[in-house]
Computed example of a mutant assay.
Amino acid sequence: MPRLHDHFWSCPCAGAARYLSPPRVRAAGPAAQVGGMITASRRPSAPGAPDTDPAPRSQRAGHGVHGGRAGSWHHHLVQRSLVLFSVGVVLALVLNLLQIQRNVTLFPDEVIATIFSSAWWVPPCCGTAAAVVGLLYPCIDSHLGEPHKFKREWASVMRCIAVFVGINHASAKLDFANNIQLSLTLAALSLGLWWTFDRSRSGLGLGITIAFLATLITQFLVYNGVYQYTSPDFLYIRSWLPCIFFSGGVTVGNIGRQLAMGVPEKPHSD
């Protein structure tokens, strides 16, 4: 009895199938090669194996360096902000204590909450202002292309802080015939602080701007009854208060500049 495959191979169409099969094999050859290439590209490269990534090696290395610089810059920015905030809080507590002892600043009894008899919102506000000012000074220097190089060491910064505390202490302790004499004396001391520890045009301009804005904000707070000054002679505040703000801005700016030394440059986006 004849078998089925004998009939198949004896069929006339078998010859046609025989002639059709080689082109299919030839057509499948390039597809198999492409599939093999895709599979090989997906496999993890072994040590010493050729690099199959279409992106240039230098471009991938550049992205890695850029990401590392950005992370390092943001890390230093957060560190400087925390240090400046802490400095602002400590200075606010100490200097405000001097003012309260001299009976210069009066807060309502219900808001006296801290160990230094200061309103609870004063230290956070001063800490935030110190962080903003301390970060702004080196940023302005960088944009103006005038890096500050005068007395850039921590010993000079500590002396600047001591002089600033002394100016604030003088505003609370010294007695003059009138407030105009006191204001002129503190103005001269504040300019002397800038000349001794800063001497930059950006520092002078920022100090004046900070003094002006801080005085406006203080006038607004006193006008709304948040707190008050005894014997105000400059609208609702004391006339020497802008001098304190100016010297404080210069002092915090020097701290911010010193902290910014050795910090990696901010990465520029391509």
Rank of each mutant, 00 (worst) to 15 (best):
M158Y: 10
A119H: 12
Y137L: 06
G64K: 13
D109S: 15
E153F: 11
T52D: 02
W73D: 03
V65H: 08
A129W: 14
H74M: 11
V87L: 04
I115A: 14
L93N: 05
S142Y: 07
H76V: 03
A131V: 01
P56S: 14
S72I: 07
Y137S: 06
D141Q: 09
F164D: 15
M158V: 07
T52L: 15
T128Q: 11
V104C: 06
G145W: 04
V132N: 03
L77I: 01
I115F: 07
G166P: 05
V87R: 02
H76A: 14
C139D: 09
A70Y: 00
A129M: 14
P54M: 09
H74N: 12
T105D: 13
A92V: 04
P138C: 05
D51C: 04
A130G: 00
L135Q: 15
I161E: 00
T105V: 08
A55R: 13
E146N: 14
T128Y: 11
P147R: 09
T105P: 01
P108C: 08
P138D: 02
G71P: 10
S81V: 05
V78M: 11
I161P: 03
V78P: 05
W73C: 01
W73N: 08
L84R: 00
H74S: 10
V90R: 00
L144S: 02
M158G: 10
F150R: 12
P124V: 05
H66N: 07
G48K: 04
G71K: 15
V65E: 14
I140T: 00
Q101D: 13
P138F: 05
P56G: 13
Q79G: 11
E146P: 02
L82S: 10
